[in-house]
Design a protein around this nucleic acid. Structure first.
Lengths: 179, 179
DNA sequence: ACAACCATGTAAGTAGTTACATGATTTA
DNA sequence: TAAATCATGTAACTACTTACATGGTTGT
């Protein structure tokens, strides 16, 4: 149950509407927890019903912008949740599955996918580096900033790792089979 | 829809029963695609109904071991699936969410979780290194082996990266706040 | 008044999780 | 013969995805 808490976090950082949240999830928060607008709207409804959020304005139906903000109860719940320790969910990477299958029934055009993925990782890395330069150049950072920098660093390191791996993979798959 | 294809792959590599599959998913394949025995049994039923697998033996009910093997149709479907290119699913990492929340409502005992996670990554890395030494020492590897080595390498690099990150995170979180 | 876009939602389906039930085989 | 373990499954639930529907606002 991470999405509700991701939403409360986002709304404490800055109150906004569902669609704006969806957009913010395509950036910062979404780099580590993706969500679609359908999920977000549904969850916002639940969270409001539970008394963890409130929607400020015009009380109207469809098509009317509703800005949400976190309530003290939501903040308390977030605090409880952060303190709780949980095992990490096992990762799932479809490309690795496909590679393993390719080893059996290949060769196929999977190199193209890896090349495409390499390009995506390069783009993402460039984006993260831009963000780092923009937001985390100051030497005297607050605890909050240091933690956010840490999160960005995980992203930087992950992308770098995948770039390195993809380049290696392309080498191996391009080489003539020695068998 | 990755689980069915992960199962077909595993059964081409070596026919076996549902429970054995569940155990194999705690090792090799499971490192990149986790599945519980409930999921596996359900999926095996579907795949058999579809004509992609067959169960060999004793036609009996509950409690009787059923060994599955892939049929040509299953192999063909796997080939089709491997050739299909798909975007990768966005990643989800709860710890990063919790960190971001911690920056707002903390400090909490999240360092303990990171320390625990660091230990797990170290253990996993050690395991992967053992596997590499055992299975991939030979210089003259077949294409299949090279690809499997590539997959293991992703695991090795990933664990190394997370160890490095966790160590850095512990430093940052242990340091006195400068704000 | 109509197109484009902003914004909120519904519905149906798939995948994954958690808890429990039941039969068969081994072994103390 | 009772306990432990191997093995297959059911049921209920939660989370996520995909496709579509509807209302509101702004610009031409």
């Amino acid at each position: 149950m991470s999405l509700p808490h991701a939403l409360i976090t986002a709304l404490i950082e800055r109150p906004c509407s569902g669609l704006e949240l969806a957009r913010r999830f395509d950036r910062s928060i979404g780099y580590f927890w993706h969500a679609t607008h359908q999920q977000i709207y549904r969850e916002l409804g639940r969270l409001e019903a539970q008394g963890w959020l409130e929607s400020l304005p015009p009380e109207a139906g469809r098509g009317r912008k509703k800005v949400y903000q976190a309530l003290p109860a939501g903040r308390a719940e977030l605090q409880r949740w952060v303190g709780e320790s949980r095992d990490q969910k096992p990762m799932r990477d479809e490309l690795m599955l496909r590679l393993r299958a390719e080893a059996l029934v290949g060769p196929t055009a999977i190199v193209d996918d890896i090349a495409r993925r390499l390009q995506m990782h390069r783009d993402t890395l460039a984006l993260y580096q831009k963000i780092e330069l923009r937001d985390f150049s100051a030497a005297d950072a607050s605890r909050e900033q240091q933690i956010q920098h840490l999160i960005l660093n995980a992203g930087l390191m992950l992308e770098t790792m995948w770039i390195e791996w993809s380049e290696k993979a392309l080498q191996v798959l391009a080489a003539p089979a020695s068998e």
